[in-house]
Design a protein around this nucleic acid. Sequence first.
DNA 1: GTCTATAATTCGATAGAC
DNA 2: GTCTATCGAATTATAGAC
Lengths: 193, 193
Amino acid sequence: MTPSAQSAQPRRSDATRAAILRAARERFAADGYERATIRAIAADAQIDPSMVMRYYGSKEGLFAAAAEFDLRLPDLTSVPPARLGEVLVRHFLARWEGDETLVALLRAASTNPGAAERMRGIFADQLTAAVAAFGTDRALTARRAGLVASQVLGLAFTRYIVRLPPMVDTAPDELVAWIAPTLQRYLTGTPPS
Amino acid sequence: MTPSAQSAQPRRSDATRAAILRAARERFAADGYERATIRAIAADAQIDPSMVMRYYGSKEGLFAAAAEFDLRLPDLTSVPPARLGEVLVRHFLARWEGDETLVALLRAASTNPGAAERMRGIFADQLTAAVAAFGTDRALTARRAGLVASQVLGLAFTRYIVRLPPMVDTAPDELVAWIAPTLQRYLTGTPPS
DNA sequence: GTCTATAATTCGATAGAC
DNA sequence: GTCTATCGAATTATAGAC
């Protein structure tokens, strides 16, 4: 039995794979899907471009691996009901700032159908599931989640992609103070007639 | 004097130019900047690709001409103060639905720096100017405009780009009812301490 | 004004030596 | 596992005939 004969082959080339993924996320986040080239990603990771193909099969396969993402939403039932909006904005802001994967996904979703599909899945599944914790009307739950997504993605789009000066310059805490009531109403507000 | 010797040369080739711009807007809106090729645009407009270059110089020049846009914001001082949010959402929704130029700009802004710059200009100039009609604090005015942009662009991004099902399926009137209070607060609400 | 032909790049992907 | 060499396709852009 080899020293590393465990279940899922802990190869020593895992470091290379990780370096590729890190470089890929950076490039996809900075340039979008089309402009991010396998050659450039390989150069950033200081490996040969053909290794990227060997490990991930194709550019789409690489993106799929690099864009794996979990929103890590907290259990909303354990949050004081009046602070739902605040907790959610703060969580999303921290998630956007701390992991460029979401920016890569956001930028790629604009032009790449597969990335858009992945984005739909993340928000339809993870966010809708979190919102479904309170409220039984499925259509209404989906609508609430969609509205929350519209504000959260708009925040990300204006702050990280288009970089509108007022949205870039404003401190996170002040953004939270402005936007929290919006999410609070989308989550718990009375639906319009 | 030729029959059409007026001020700004009303050439008969203007029809061709218009057809090119229309096809360009469609392609840029559907595919984004990189995937929209001059060849495909020319094919849509049923002309030779070289004519596009002759008329607009380069792909960037074509995009710059096709992405010319005016939000046509109404004078907000003549709107009942309590209905500001509603008027604004409704106006934006109609503007998005009726003119694919904004979708083209939105999609291209994700990957093309020039398009992002144009987007910044449109929202920083036109929207900020409209918001400046009430309120004298310039920093606060810019922030209000940025927040409005974040929600409006998020609405467009989720509805027209990512196409989140709940945002696509919901009728415009209901979207207005949900989102109007958000814009109302961003425009007229008391700033957080 | 319109079109053909092609230059000059660049990219994703493959084949195969070592 | 890693790298060299290269294919084949697609792109923007240009030159020049008609």
